[in-house]
C-alpha cells in the first residue's frame, strides 16, 4: 500500500493557497481578454483593461489579485488504496491553509462563530469536501472563494413541472438580482438535481471546471450556451456599469434527483475565479 506523509500535504496546500491568489489559470485570463475584445463601450473596455493590468501587477509584485483571498474551499479525492501517515488529513489541510495564508500575506477572512464573529486570524478552518475514489493517489483542488459573489448565490427548490424553462429562468433571475454586487464579469456555477445540499455542492464544483469547457451532456451544454447568451444580453456588463460581458461562462453540473424534485443552485463567482489542482 502506498504511503503519503502529511508533511508533504501541508507543504503542497501552503503553496497552492499562495499560487491560487496571485495568478489566475489561463482559461480565465483568456476569457477576460476575449471579453475586452468583444466590448464596444468605453467604460466597459476601461474596466476590463484595468482587470488585465491588475493581474499583471498581482503576478509581478506578488500582491493578491483581490483583497478578498476567500475562504479556502477544497475538493479532495482520496484514493482508497492510499495510506496517510502523520496527523489527520483534515488537520494537515488546515495547517497548510494556516501557513499559506500567513506566509503568503493573504487576508484572514474567517470568523469562528457566525454570530459572535471573532476572527480566527489564520483563515482556518477550511471547507473541505471529500470523495473516496479508486487508486492510491491524493488529488487536492483548492478554490479560494470570495464572499462578495458568494452572498449573491441562490438555491431554488423547483417543481419537476417547471422543467428546463424553470431552470433557465432561475439562473437568469439570480444573475439579474446579483447585478453589480457580485463583481461582474461573472462565472456562474450551477447545480441541477441531487437534494438540498448536494445541489449547492454541485454548483460550487461547477465553478472549478475550466470556463472554456462545456458539459459533456449535450442537453446540458445547450442550456449552458443559451443561458450564457441571455445573461450577456442583460446589459449588466463589467462592474455592473453596462456592457456585453456580464458572464464569462455558465458551468452546469448535474446529479440524479427524486421523482418529486428539481433543485437548482446558482453559485456566483466573480472574475477572480481561482482554482489550483495537484495530485500527490
Amino acid at each position: 500500500m502506498r504511503s503519503l506523509h502529511t508533511d508533504e500535504i501541508i507543504k503542497n496546500v501552503r503553496e497552492m493557497c499562495i499560487e491560487a491568489n496571485l495568478q489566475l489559470a489561463p482559461d480565465m485570463t483568456e476569457a477576460i481578454h476575449n471579453g475586452l475584445e468583444n466590448e464596444t463601450g468605453n467604460l466597459a473596455r476601461q474596466i476590463l483593461g484595468q482587470l488585465e493590468q491588475n493581474m499583471q501587477i498581482a503576478k509581478e509584485d506578488k500582491i493578491p489579485i483581490c483583497q478578498d483571498t476567500g475562504m479556502a474551499v477544497f475538493f479532495v479525492n482520496v484514493g482508497q488504496d492510499l495510506h496517510i501517515e502523520g496527523m489527520s488529513l483534515t488537520d494537515a489541510i488546515n495547517e497548510g491553509v494556516r501557513q499559506g495564508y500567513t506566509d503568503g500575506y493573504l487576508r484572514k477572512s474567517v470568523v469562528k462563530d457566525p454570530l459572535l464573529r471573532e476572527n480566527t486570524k489564520d483563515n482556518t478552518p477550511a471547507i473541505i469536501h471529500y470523495d473516496i475514489v479508486p487508486g492510491d493517489k491524493l488529488e487536492i483542488l483548492i478554490a479560494p472563494k470570495g464572499f462578495g459573489s458568494e452572498n449573491m448565490s441562490k438555491l431554488y427548490m423547483l417543481k419537476p413541472a417547471d422543467g428546463e424553462e424553470g431552470v433557465k429562468n432561475a439562473i437568469l433571475q439570480a444573475v439579474s438580482e446579483a447585478g453589480p454586487n457580485a463583481c461582474p464579469p461573472l462565472v456562474v456555477g450551477v447545480g441541477i438535481g441531487g437534494d438540498f445540499e448536494l445541489c449547492a455542492k454541485l454548483a460550487k464544483k461547477a465553478l472549478t471546471r475550466n470556463v472554456n469547457e462545456s458539459s459533456k451532456l449535450p442537453h446540458i451544454k445547450e442550456i449552458e450556451d443559451e443561458v450564457l447568451d441571455k445573461i450577456n444580453h442583460l446589459g449588466i456588463g463589467p462592474g455592473g456599469l453596462g456592457g456585453r460581458t456580464t458572464a464569462l461562462a455558465v458551468n452546469i453540473e448535474t446529479y440524479a434527483t427524486h421523482i418529486a424534485g428539481l433543485p437548482v443552485a446558482v453559485n456566483m463567482c466573480c472574475h477572480v475565479n481561482r482554482h489550483v489542482k495537484r495530485t500527490l
Binding site: 491588475n54 483583497q67 462592474g239 466573480c270
Partner: peptide
Amino acid sequence: FAAVGGAGALLSK
C-alpha cells in the same frame, strides 16, 4: 463612488 471590484493589486498602487 464605485471602484473596480477585484482590481485590488492595481488600486493598491
